[in-house]
Nucleic acid binder design. Sequence first.
DNA 1: TCCAGAATGTCGGCTGGCCGACAGACATGG
DNA 2: CCATGTCTGTCGGCCAGCCGACATTCTGGA
Lengths: 233, 233
Amino acid sequence: MEASDGHFTRQTGPTDFLARLSSADARDLIQASQRKLFARNEFIFKAGDPGRHVYFLQQGRVKICQPAPEGKDVILWFCFTGDMFGMAEVARGGGRVVHAQACEASEVLVLSQNELTDYLKTHSAAALPIMQVLADRLRALGDVVVNLINDDAQTRIIKLILRLATRHGIRVGQDIHLNIHLTHQEIADMVGTTRQTASSVLGHLKRQGLMRLENRRIRIDSMELLDEMTNST
Amino acid sequence: MEASDGHFTRQTGPTDFLARLSSADARDLIQASQRKLFARNEFIFKAGDPGRHVYFLQQGRVKICQPAPEGKDVILWFCFTGDMFGMAEVARGGGRVVHAQACEASEVLVLSQNELTDYLKTHSAAALPIMQVLADRLRALGDVVVNLINDDAQTRIIKLILRLATRHGIRVGQDIHLNIHLTHQEIADMVGTTRQTASSVLGHLKRQGLMRLENRRIRIDSMELLDEMTNST
DNA sequence: TCCAGAATGTCGGCTGGCCGACAGACATGG
DNA sequence: CCATGTCTGTCGGCCAGCCGACATTCTGGA
């Protein structure tokens, strides 16, 4: 068991892009870019915007979600300190297809497309980490797709929690804390169910003592037991 | 390569990686890599393999699918002539999580991880097209996720067909031909339904004169009408 | 050319989970 | 510290789509 639902290792998170750059490359990136601040819930960009900038999250938390016709936005992933986002549209061209919204007050570095290509010309070693981030997300989305296709609502929710825990969880004593403010509605939207179903599944898990929600933040009591529920019931 | 210029948005296919390289870069890539042939249905790699090589499809068609616990493989996407695949694991490290299987006799260029990094050092302009390919797939998977979450079976199937047509369709007279051999089962697996439901939806569409299946290959009579069915019924 | 194995068409029963509805519990900013 | 709007728990009715089963058609390899 090596891949998707395995156990977690790095604290820096597999998503910490900035940490992967050499310190010289990171310094130059900071120098080449412009610093910007965003308030909680503010949009950094929205679907439909031109999309000529890449962002690096220096501090804070950002939610990437893709709007669907009837206002049902789907949360694709979260960005944490060190993460890069907005890259896809810059590389590929065309406008934004997703929103990027600050979950809390956040500080980002902004680089225009031209600045990025210039930077890459002189810092070719930075290309690989970028590919890594993209590759990593590709794999994560692949898992999501498989999950959506094969699993029932309860399993989807459990696997979502495990995915988040693996990527963003912090061990606190016996527990694992997820420092993401999530409503049942948002969980449902990430997993393709209704709020009601999500509520009932989460209630069920809570009653089994597998996890809690404290102030809309997930606390996991036992990854192992949660994982087991995946193949049964 | 050609995919003749009809009324289509993008011709060369957004997926044609090799076409995006400068001719010098492409030449060097071919020189640095090793040529390999695969028979129809042969696996180029399987989930669990080490995954230290990138592949460039010179000729043929390759199916990328991710295995799920109970043997229900999910087809994530297809690669056509000029496409790159196997990049994600090379960039990210870790074993393969997907299978790559030749849909027909295919010819690929193989590059080891080291050869790739060496190549990128001397051909830094090639980094951007790689990012483009990854970004493009990321976006495609995002669409799939939203589609899976929001739409019912019929709409999912129609949108799948439209996606494939947009990316890989070839205009032939009034029709658009999709040169991909697909069984109902495979369509169902891409879209998260059962074979029976897929059969019935496809039968329905055929009866409406919106599309046909000739020798397991999709022929679309009217993209417009198909598209309309997306928002109704 | 022929034939076995694969793919398709279709039916009915059954159920997971959607939908609407509402009461109670928070949490947050004034 | 309170009020209000948001979030959570839970219920019952209902239906899209799953499942199993079967007959029929197709097709690709020998």
